[in-house]
Amino acid sequence: MAAPRAYLRLVSPVWNAGFGGARGLSGMVAPEGTQKKKRTLGQYLADHFSDVQALREYLTQRQMSKVHQKNWIPTNVKNQYGPYVAGAFFILKLGGSVKFQGQEWIGPNGYSQFRQGFLKFQTVPIEAVDASGCALNYNGLDNLLPLKELQTLSLQRCPHVDDWCLSHLYPLAHSLRELSLAGCPRVSERGLACLHHFQNLRRLDISSLPAVSNPSLTQILVEEMLPSCEVLGVDWTHGMKLAPEEPPQDTARPVPA
């Protein structure tokens, strides 16, 4: 199974941070080959000097703790103004968008405006959250679980959403109508199996998940598991790669993101 790419990249930024001075700006445009060579230099130094090793370990740890820092829980806000305001603050701060019932979408640009007028939203439930591409992880999801009226949740291309997160979402099972997991690099068929709690789901997007080993089979099994839900997954034409000849206009078509 292909390891998620975004995850593997974790090592090189650490290296960049540690030896940025030595590499300078050329590192940004250096081809793949030289980058590999320099990485082995870092490895070599770490093998021979325990200080370098300790430094590299520290930098890796810091990289990981950054994600945890982003996924804080605004306990004070939650106690004072309720779960809706706290959830909205959290998602807007991460760079996502929120839709209160009967209101317009509030995007990350509307954060300052929301800060001034959030008091009127205290009792208005949140009905949709779009956290596409945010650094949301398991701990951060705790902010969304008290939103009992949440109907639409989009977690597209979230690099830290994994199978554990999907099993954590079960308190939303009664309200959720639409869920999008498209492009999450760490979601696999093992996590999709626990979506069977979501019997009210009407629309589920599981397209382009690189960690799923058999996308077509997984889609069929998920459709069997959720009979009343429309499952968006693999394109049927995409699965028929073995066709002897492809029409030429297919290759010219831009690859969908």
């Binding site: 199974m1 390891a3 870092g42 770490a46 590299r56 199978d163 554990w164 099993s167 626990c194």
Partner: peptide, 12 residues
Amino acid sequence: VDDPPLDLQFNP
């Protein structure tokens, strides 16, 4: 450091 992440294959 430098080793790929583990794939625990947890089935929740």
